[in-house]
Amino acid sequence: MLHIVNKSPFQSTTLDSCLATARPDGSILLIEDAVYAATRGSAAAARLEQALGKFKIYVLTPDLEARGIAGSVIDGVRLVDYAGFVDLVAEHKGCQSWL
């Protein structure tokens, strides 16, 4: 299943809820303000690096670029564009948006 997170990890506990609920082998896509979670050196980075051992983690490039952080993404996080976003939704059986 694909989990989509769109809230900043510094503003909301949404990412933690997602990480605690998602089944191993699930995929997580970070969009909008959630992309800040995928940046090196942030307070969320350790959690995200740990989660990489359990899930495939994707981040939406246009949202990174818009925020000027496309160069600071943690290794192992996969970048997707909008077409990739659509592919992810189509590939997975279901989708949960952690609004």
Binding site: M1, S17, A20, R23, G26, G94, L99
Partner: peptide
């Protein structure tokens, strides 16, 4: 438990998120 909810989620045809 949260993990159990995650398991149920995987079994759905459709998940509506609010």
């Amino acid at each position: 438990e949260r993990a159990e909810i995650g398991r149920l989620m995987e079994q759905q045809d459709v998940v509506f998120s609010f």
